[in-house]
Amino acid sequence: MKIRSNIAVSASGLIFNPDTGESFTVNPMGAEIISFLKEGLGQEKISLQITQKYNVEPSAFEKDFEDFMGLLRNYTLLDDE
């Protein structure tokens, strides 16, 4: 899964969809995950990066990650559809 190429993401976590004009804000963790997605990293690699850096169990991260992907998908920000 990838963030759609025309989606703009700022360093401060503002996401802008130029097709619809919608904008969203994400917290620093969301922004970090989005930056990994933009680099083309898959779920496993992102999970590894996050669980090594922060005190979080892989299973807990996986659940939150899927919730987050569901939100991005719902707002048509992902390219995997």
Binding site: N6, P18, D19, T20, G21, S23
Partner: peptide, 8 residues
Amino acid sequence: GGVSISDK
């Protein structure tokens, strides 16, 4: 208020 967009 409004924002310029690019919907094809």
